[in-house]
Amino acid sequence: MNLSHDQVEALAKTIGLDIPPDEIPHVLRQLAALLTAMQEAEDRIGHLLDAVEPIPAVFPHEDF
């Protein structure tokens, strides 16, 4: 996932987060790694992701 310094800085500003310029490369690297991993999942099983609902597995009273 190719992201630029300016893109990460602008994204952070949309939520009021000022990241020091010298730390943006670290955040960029981390964000790019996450988005790349998700893109790999989309490429392999995107059609399955379309077909399931995003319900958290936290129902304390269900029968398994």
Binding site: A12, I15, L17, Q30, L49, V52
Partner: peptide, 19 residues
């Protein structure tokens, strides 16, 4: 900080993946 910047659509896809 990186987690704060995850787009909502990616979060939704992650939740679907967890299911």
């Amino acid at each position: 900080a990186a987690s704060c910047l995850i787009p909502a659509v990616v979060y939704d896809r992650g939740m679907r993946g967890r299911a």
